[in-house]
Design a protein around this nucleic acid. Structure first.
Lengths: 206, 206, 206, 206
DNA sequence: TATGAATGAGACTTCATTCAT
DNA sequence: TATGAATGAAGTCTCATTCAT
């Protein structure tokens, strides 16, 4: 049985293994502490089977993470595409980011903004896997968002594209920083935080 | 021999061990992959000595990280205090952030904005160590910065304190996102990125 | 491959590990000083294999000892059963005791008489393993011996059962004390010692 | 400060170390699990001090045990000497044996009868320490006891000396076997057990 | 003389990887 | 193809012993 997903082709067992790993991580396992036995059990395959499809544990986990990032980004793109105005899309992005962070497996967010690559799973960095494709996709979403904003006239056309991208990313990051330490922001709920983030973007882009 | 540093008291060997660990991390070691043997060698002490001062490897590394965060924050505060205008302080913050990220050990940045707590060294989370003190110190620096901005009249007094803090954090985060993927921002150098980040902050706060 | 021995079921490797341990002990290793590496080598298995079958070294060694006691007792019972008169059986017991002591692994004797439980492998005591089954089996052999003695008329029926058991155990212990310090009993050989032990039993029981 | 005790000369610290070790053992520590740190603490001396008086941990513990055996035997001799008839002496021996076993540190008993040398502290065996002096002392006590028995006419003069010694040792061993598994001898108390042991000795020697 | 901080060999145990079935 | 029993390298941690004070 062959599956075609996100431009890549995976075999049945391969996907089972990926899902097993993602499950473990979503349940709170630390990427660095996962064992092959755990993966085999979570994926319902034998330990040996994993080595039929991958060369090392590191490769297995890394590819699972990349697979998941890919899926997350495609899902995110689909969800964003359903909104057709600037504000709707921006809030959808915040929603997505918030959900991912709550799930404790923030691959998208890692890419979206800060610090991500330095804490990323070593193997990926060492293998110099080309993560730029993901960044490119996200950048494209931001550019699409900006374009809609211009068309609607909700944001101005001043400043260059680099400034505009920074403005969007910065605004989203400000929201992320709220999410990450919600308990320290007494007196502000998540909706207000979203509103503030949106206000930030609007002011920065006008 | 006893040393007093940042309100805490450490013994000579304890500091040697901390420094050994920080060195390893700054040289690129992953926090989760460091071994006790590596620490002993890096700190120039015997393996057993580490266990004279700490109970487990996890405790040792965690305390070294906390020690380093503490030092980084204090150093940062000192450097920022040397500048006395809003713009000078803001750029100093960006400098500090940039240097930390280049050093591959971005403890301050972990706290400053995104994702930090979810990938933080497990032991710290399990021990429920009170990290709020660090956040509080950073928050205070941001508030001090805002105050100077108001006095200088370079930023307006509109918006509540939460919005203002988000504006500063978001602007800094936008710069961080530039640093993290410099190679993808062709045609923009670090100084320009700083200028854009500053422009972002000013626009958001006026 | 599965083996059934003495009412318990063991797997091939498990038995190899038991045999490896018993071998070490019989060659003079002290129970408290045996290392896992030694066991692995002696059993011709990998170190890791031991932990596939047992949780700790203590558990492993303890179960090996119990396994051996069980075997020794069953073997002893079989040998004794081949003799059908009182004297034959008594001398067979002395033979068994002597052989075990020469083998330096005197599990039966540990139970038979003195001191055994206070120096027994700690884990067994902590686990409160039911050693009473072994004692019961030995007690039964002694009772069977006494019965034959009565039937033959070689011993009298005076005294209660407690006294009679003590008489047998004491006589055997006296022989053990000879074995243990043969070098101090100049001028007496093992056969004479057996005769004296037998005489002791007979006199005590008439 | 110099002390003279039992023909040997010990220095103050040496005795403190011995006492520390004996204390540990009497409190239930396994001879094979005692650490030098524990000894130092129990003896109220520094770890280094132990190595000023002894070369290795094994030597230290072994000598402490020998020292204790010596003391126990001398104490036993003194106690036995206070009784002047056969029966009194025999029961005193049983008392001593019972007390030692209850104390979990049955050095005398180890020597008295069974199995002792095979479970004895390895170092002693390896160093081929001359334990015969202890055996000789015990043998002498037994001979003294027999002599008194003859004089009193409570035991006959039949049988050679080897048989007579075996009779005494066997009778005592039978009592030890009772002590060691008191819980399995329901319906018999310690006084009755002593009486049975005595009866055993008398019958064997008449 | 007496101490205990420091050391590192070596113990137990885990787990990535192999390979016979 | 798929498995999991088996392995042993390498990890964490303990503790006998040393030595500067």
């Amino acid at each position: 049985m062959i599956f075609d997903m996100n431009d890549a082709i995976y075999r049945e067992k391969e996907l089972a293994i990926f899902d097993g790993i993602i499950d473990l991580i979503k349940k709170g396992s630390n990427v660095y502490s996962i064992t092959v036995s755990e993966i085999a059990k979570s994926a319902n395959v034998g330990k040996g089977t994993i080595y039929d499809y991958f060369d090392t544990k590191e490769e297995t986990i890394s590819k699972a993470i990349l697979y998941n990032i890919d899926n997350e980004i495609e899902d995110a793109k689909d969800r964003i595409a359903l909104k057709d105005d600037f504000k709707g899309r921006y809030y959808e992005m915040l929603d997505i980011v918030a959900e991912n962070l709550k799930n404790k497996f923030c691959t998208i967010n890692m890419l979206l903004s800060v610090g991500g690559f330095h804490e990323f799973y070593e193997y990926l960095v060492n293998q110099r896997h080309d993560i730029s494709q993901y960044i490119y996709k996200i950048e494209q979403e931001i550019d699409k968002l900006l374009e809609i904003g211009f068309e609607e006239g909700v944001i101005g056309i001043g400043g260059n594209i680099y400034y505009q991208r920074m403005a969007i990313k910065g605004s989203i990051s400000a929201f992320i920083s709220y999410i990450n330490m919600e308990e320290y922001w007494q007196g502000i709920d998540i909706d207000t935080a979203m509103d503030l983030s949106y206000k930030l973007a609007i002011k920065a882009l006008n």
